[in-house]
Design a binder for these strands. Structure first.
Length: 549
RNA sequence: GGCCCCGUGGUCAAGCGGUUAAGACAUCGCCCUUUCACGGCGGAGACAUGGGUUCGAUUCCCGUCGGGGUCACCA
């Protein structure tokens, strides 16, 4: 028996690889176009690192006129979850990332290089495994888990490098006839790659992010087809990225150490190797040490977290883009109104080591992003968020016309307010503007410097009877507050007061504070004049009465 | 432990043999201001460490220390 016959015995139905080579022809793209992919396993939510990869991939494809593929790596059936693919598609969509090709739903896809879900590509992998076996570059292995376990124990005890290689690769040297016998006898098998590498030889690799790296060659006879007939990651990576005509593999740097293996696999299969870009992981500070941000320990590792908190996806993307290319910040400052898509991203500018995720900084980015939104956009976004996460807020926003006025306070001008960093902050910052909330609450008035109850009552009464007029413009309005201040022995100007504090009980700021607290229950608010314009005469009068009680 | 990568203020980071070692966030102070949020100005704060190489090292080389990644029929 020869290799060819052995291969036929193992995979009798597999098509020749030429069939697939023809089915998935080279792409007709312009020179320099990057074909990239994001290839998560559907094990649950999208990780912040996955989003990071996706943003980079999306930009690379956009900038070069290339293609961004979403492929699902579901070859480990033990880790599947319900609707895993939909969750990934939807999460990316939340951040405005739409792949050009690949999965679009749990079982739907677009593109002609599919299937894009690995579990649907079993035949393809087997065809290529068969091809390797035929050439003697792969072989069936009959090692049981117990055997492997024993081997590992021996290696550990002897303090030598663990793994299935060299003299430890027991079934590598099995004759074709012996192997065929075992197969016919029904013994379970996997397919292993027959590595020709030597551990004491070096291999050079140029990574688009990490630069030049030297590794020992791979000499492990890794499993390429598992007992269940599905491929391992390594084999699927080689076959898929070749057949999908991927040009640039952008993936997390935890894969860096398997580059020698991948290179050898591509070579054995006769594939052209793609360019690799290994991105540094996003880290988390934990008790003074850095570690990879983790799904299990860190809620902020899931992109859904940002959605729940109400941090606009644009802010998350800008923050991540800044981690990717730190010159983004400067670009944003110089081009405050441009779309992210105009920023020129460069792989070569990525940091080689992992950045600690900084939520405070993200919030700062977010604050700036939000400050540029129109009141209409803020209203829409807050409402959408509230519908999902805060019914009380949703209810408050029912009066759209009024809410727009609230969001319009100090907004839409040259120096918009920057006091909202996330939608979950909104309720607290505007709740007092709503009569049904404010008037029905037990407001604890803290009037600040002026705290004599009688004095406060007199000030409020005088203001409402003698000065208040809804029609006043801002200047007139404020002049009247100055008049009011003078009337009660407070300085018209803060400066006057500071020069001669003994002449006054306080200054116009103290009086303003009394009005502010009476109307809003707070000492700190946006511009009082604008607030009063929004509240309207009716509400102002009611609030004043409430405050006097 | 083997292999690989990395080490500039609290965090993200410019820097590519000669710099007063940028900038952003955070922090502190002052100014602006009727409060707040902004905005402006300023302060404090860094080249892990020891050896080389060099007229000169944050920058190049080696060691040490520290951090990270990886060593599955998981991806």
């Amino acid at each position: 028996m020869n290799y060819k016959e052995l291969a036929d015995l193992l995979f009798p139905d597999a098509k020749p690889v030429s069939y697939y080579e023809e089915k998935y022809p080279a792409r007709n793209l312009k020179e320099g176009a990057a074909v990239v992919r994001f290839a998560p396993s559907p094990t649950g939510f999208v990780h912040i690192g996955g989003l990071y990869q996706s943003i980079i991939n999306r930009k690379l494809a956009d900038q070069t006129g290339g293609v961004f593929i979403l492929r699902i790596e579901d070859t480990d059936q033990k880790r599947q979850i319900e609707n895993g693919v939909v969750q990934i598609v939807d999460s990316l969509k939340d951040f405005d990332i739409i792949p050009d090709e690949g999965m679009t739903g749990e079982n739907t896809e677009k593109g002609i290089y599919g299937p894009y879900k690995q579990s649907d590509r079993k035949d393809i992998y087997q065809a290529f495994a068969k091809y390797l076996i035929e050439q003697g570059k792969a072989y069936p292995c009959f090692a049981t888990p117990e055997e492997l376990e024993e081997m590992r124990n021996k290696q550990e005890a002897a303090k030598i490098r663990p793994g299935y290689y060299g003299i430890w690769a027991k079934y590598r040297t099995l004759s074709v006839d012996e192997a065929a016998e075992k197969i016919k006898a029904g013994e379970p098998w996997v397919v292993r790659f027959k590595s020709m590498g030597q551990e004491d030889k070096k291999i050079k690799h140029h990574d688009l992010i990490k630069g030049n790296i030297e590794f020992p060659e791979n000499d492990q006879d890794i499993v390429i087809i598992k007992a269940d007939g599905l491929p391992t990651y390594h084999f699927a990576h080689a076959v898929d990225d070749h057949l999908m005509r991927v040009t640039h593999v952008v993936r997390a740097d935890e894969w860096l150490s398997s580059v020698p293996l991948h290179l050898e696999l591509f070579k054995a299969l006769g594939f052209k190797t793609p360019k690799y870009a290994h991105t540094a992981s996003i880290m988390k500070e934990d008790e003074g040490k850095k570690r990879k941000i983790s799904k299990r320990k860190d809620p902020e590792a899931a992109v859904s977290y940002y959605h729940e908190e109400g941090i606009p996806s644009q802010a998350v993307c800008e923050y991540l883009l800044n981690i990717a290319n730190s010159n983004f910040e400067g670009w944003r400052k110089a081009n405050p109104d441009k779309d992210i898509s105009e920023f020129k991203f460069e792989l070569g500018k990525m940091s080689v080591s992992g950045a600690v995720f900084d939520l405070i900084k993200l919030l700062d980015v977010s604050k700036n992003v939000i400050s540029k939104y129109t009141k209409e956009r803020i209203y829409d976004e807050v409402l959408t968020w509230a519908k999902r996460y805060d019914t009380e807020l949703e209810e408050m926003l029912q009066d759209k016309e009024y809410s727009l006025k609230v969001f319009g306070i100090e907004r839409g001008n040259a120096k918009p307010r920057k006091d909202i960093a996330k939608w979950s902050d909104v309720k607290e910052s505007i709740i007092y503007m709503y009569d049904n909330k404010f008037l029905n609450s037990n407001t604890e008035y803290q009037f600040g410097n002026i705290n004599d109850k009688e004095e406060i009552k007199k000030i409020l009464t005088s203001y409402m009877e003698k000065h208040f007029n809804m029609q006043d413009d801002k200047q007139t309005w404020f002049d009247k507050i100055k008049d009011l201040s003078e009337e009660f022995g407070y300085a018209r100007e803060v400066k006057e007061y500071k020069q001669n504090p003994e002449n006054y009980k306080g200054h116009v700021g103290d009086v303003s504070t009394v009005l502010r607290v009476a109307l809003t229950g707070r000492q700190n608010t946006p511009d009082l004049y604008e607030i009063m314009q929004v509240l309207g005469e009716e509400s102002i009068k009611t609030r004043m009465e409430k405050a006097k009680k």
